[in-house]
């Protein structure tokens, strides 16, 4: 079953159990005002059963979200983004090092040329 099918099924179950619970509650309200305790209790049992099934369906959907295969793929995908961010910073650090070495080389050349100029003078 694909992830989309699972999500669709979850939505459908949420809707179906939700409708059963809403209908049971509406009837409970009528039974309450009618003073029909037996019918009220019967409807409460129906509501509780629907809630139990709803919880089961919700938990099944969450278990699918936390499956090892899904987490493996997500962690690997995000790890790739982390690497890209780190790579850019490393590139920048290396570029700065190259430029600093270039500056040092130029300063050294200036110092040597100064010495040469003194000797020639």
């Amino acid at each position: 079953m694909s992830e989309k099918q699972l999500i669709d099924m979850q939505k459908s179950l949420e809707f179906s159990f939700g409708e059963i619970i809403r209908a049971a509650v509406a009837e409970q309200l009528k039974a309450k005002f009618a003073g029909d305790t037996a019918r009220f209790d019967e409807l409460v049992a129906l509501e509780d059963e629907a809630r139990s099934k709803l919880r089961q369906a919700r938990m099944q959907a969450m278990v699918a979200d936390l499956s090892t295969a899904k987490i493996d793929a997500l962690v690997a995908g995000l790890g790739d983004k982390v690497s890209r961010a780190r790579d850019l910073l490393e590139d920048l650090r290396r570029t700065r090092e190259v430029l600093e070495n270039l500056r040092k080389a130029a300063e050294l050349a200036t110092a040597i040329l100064g010495t040469v100029a003194t000797i020639l003078a």
Binding site: T95, E100, R103, A106, E107, T110
Partner: peptide
Amino acid sequence: AASAAVTAIGTA
């Protein structure tokens, strides 16, 4: 660093 390198190269 680029700025400093260019200055140093110019001086050299």
